[in-house]
Design a protein around this nucleic acid. Structure first.
Lengths: 231, 231
DNA sequence: TTGTGCAATCCTGTATACCGTATCCCTAGA
DNA sequence: TCTAGGGATACGGTATACAGGATTGCACAA
């Protein structure tokens, strides 16, 4: 059309336009993850709508999205409640996550570009810095970002669409359990495996990492349940 | 509480109640799969609403659901269009499907009950009968049912929630390409591997089956594209 | 003939109001 | 203490309105 060579493909006047429903969804998801709405909280459409200064329609649509992401459960005619992840839910989450993250890392190994890898390297450096300065929050965020970026390296849109919400729930879970562990060595090894270009090596590391991660979360949950049952 | 032993957990006056949005979603999905709305068709809220005799709200919610299932693509302020699966989409579909179906079969091998296996056996018999009588439609349905049931054998709710929509798209694709192949031997072998209780064996067969399936679809698509480009 | 600009139109996104009905909760009564 | 009744609450759905981006078609200019 009228676009000059070198310019982005389309005109995109409104590239950053986001429907209200999506902004509401993001805000509610954030509140759930940040424990503003702890598990068990009822999410009442009218309350949220007036609180956010929007009508019920976008709130309803946001709620359906959060339901399909697994953050809330809707019982027909009773409304939506923030889910409490059961032990079985956690196991299933790790089952599926392992299968998909192994695939993501395999594909990342064969498809990642130099620029991709540089970006991940930067994120890892940020994590190391956060660890050194003892900033647990920043470390957690950097670790989350690491997984998000690995996922992008797969250059597989469907995989990203499927796995991303699961990772969201995983991150939520890790924040609930305190996420008090050092994954940097693990992540570095995984990153190197991917950088090597060997799909098999990357897969092996991804599987190992997922399993270690699962074990840690299992232990944390077991501890939490013990202290809860003694109350 | 007040319920007597042996009675269902709750009174369940309305056990089969389904929100309108879900029924609309199912109906629209059916129409897409049955090619009533071929790829590229614009889905206009008002039209569908008046056609189905409902208001716009449930139609909108159904559309979002179909979007997250990957049947339609919506561009903000421009509306929803039935997607046309690109070659890359198909590859990604098979990538993720393979990873998840391998997991499903592994878990099915260790978790399936006798009753589960009997049920699948019945479905396989149905497929054989359909093949013998040359009923292609029934054969296709039976093959779809086979995969749905294997998935249930995994007794993994999350896995089912994630994989089921992908299988829906896959079945859609197979109907588009004509689904003209005989999978019964393959399915029988997979079924026996699962029945044996060996996760490794089941995984191997699942992987092999997924790859064969992918090859067949690739060939069919290549043929279709050739005949399309010569038009 | 081919393009270009503008106006009319369509449709989405959102708001508002309202209704029926299922569910929940509280209270009064046995 | 338990149960039944009744009101309050909130979901699911309908109807309507409207602003403004997107699309289309047409007239007009090059």
């Amino acid at each position: 059309m009228s676009s000059q060579p070198g310019e982005p493909a389309s005109v995109d006047i409104d590239a950053d336009y986001k429907p209200l429903r999506d902004r509401v969804r993001d805000e509610l998801r954030r509140r759930i993850i940040d424990d503003v709405y702890p598990p068990g909280t009822r999410l009442v459409e009218n309350e949220l709508a007036s609180q956010l200064g929007v009508s019920r329609v976008p709130v309803r649509e946001a709620m359906r999205a959060l339901e399909s992401e697994g953050f809330v459960k809707t019982v027909p005619r009773r409304g939506a409640v923030v889910v409490e992840l059961s032990a079985q839910d956690v196991e299933e989450l790790f089952d599926v996550r392992e299968a998909l993250e192994v695939l993501a890392c395999q594909q990342a190994a064969t498809r990642a570009t130099k620029a991709d890898l540089r970006r991940v390297g930067t994120t890892l450096a940020r994590a190391r810095k956060a660890l050194a300065s003892g900033d647990r929050l920043a470390l957690g965020r950097a670790n989350e970002a690491f997984h998000d970026e690995i996922l992008k390296l797969s250059h597989n849109d469907l995989l990203q669409n499927v796995l991303h919400p699961l990772q969201g729930r995983l991150h939520w879970l890790l924040r609930q359990t305190g996420d008090p562990y050092d994954l940097i060595e693990e992540h570095t090894a995984l990153f190197e495996a991917i950088s090597s270009g060997s799909a098999d090596l990357a897969a092996e590391h991804a599987r190992q990492h997922a399993r270690l991660n699962r074990e840690i979360v299992r232990r944390l949950l077991a501890e939490r349940n013990q202290s809860a049952s003694s109350a």
